Amino acid sequence: MKVTLNGTTLAESNETVVVENNHYFPPASVKTELFSDSNTSTVCPWKGTAAYYSATVDGKTVKDVAWYYPETFEKANNIKGYVAFYKNKVVIE
């Protein structure tokens, strides 16, 4: 799986974990130098509290392009720290 924003690769991995039809990418497969922390957070009743990233490519920032769970509830331990992306903000293939 590969995620791009305006032709720039944000993440690429053969080892994503699919949860609720979203591919979660291992942290090492994500180009974190393109990301900045967002103030946004959401809560999932079975995964935990999600933190968000914004991405900057070619001087343009897309807010809240990705999310991850820095800490998870037990049922979601397999995606702790993994990063998922909003399909309407990036290309996932």
Rank of each mutant, 00 (worst) to 15 (best):
N77G: 14
A76H: 11
D64A: 11
V83K: 02
P70Q: 10
A66Q: 08
E71S: 13
K60N: 14
T72R: 07
Y69L: 09
E74I: 11
T72G: 08
Y82H: 12
T61N: 14
W67N: 07
P70L: 11
D64E: 09
D64Y: 09
Y68E: 06
V57T: 06
D64V: 03
P70E: 06
D58V: 10
E74W: 02
T72E: 05
G59R: 07
W67L: 07
T72P: 07
N78P: 08
N78W: 09
A55Q: 01
Y69G: 06
G81F: 07
W67Q: 10
V57Q: 07
Y69V: 03
I79A: 01
E71G: 06
N77I: 11
W67V: 06
A84V: 03
D64T: 05
G81Y: 02
F73R: 12
A66F: 02
V62E: 02
E71W: 10
V62D: 00
G81Q: 08
E74K: 12
K63P: 05
K60G: 12
G81I: 03
V62Y: 01
Y82C: 08
K63G: 06
I79D: 00
N77C: 12
A76G: 13
K63L: 14
K75W: 09
D64G: 07
V62T: 15
F85V: 05
K80H: 08
G59V: 06
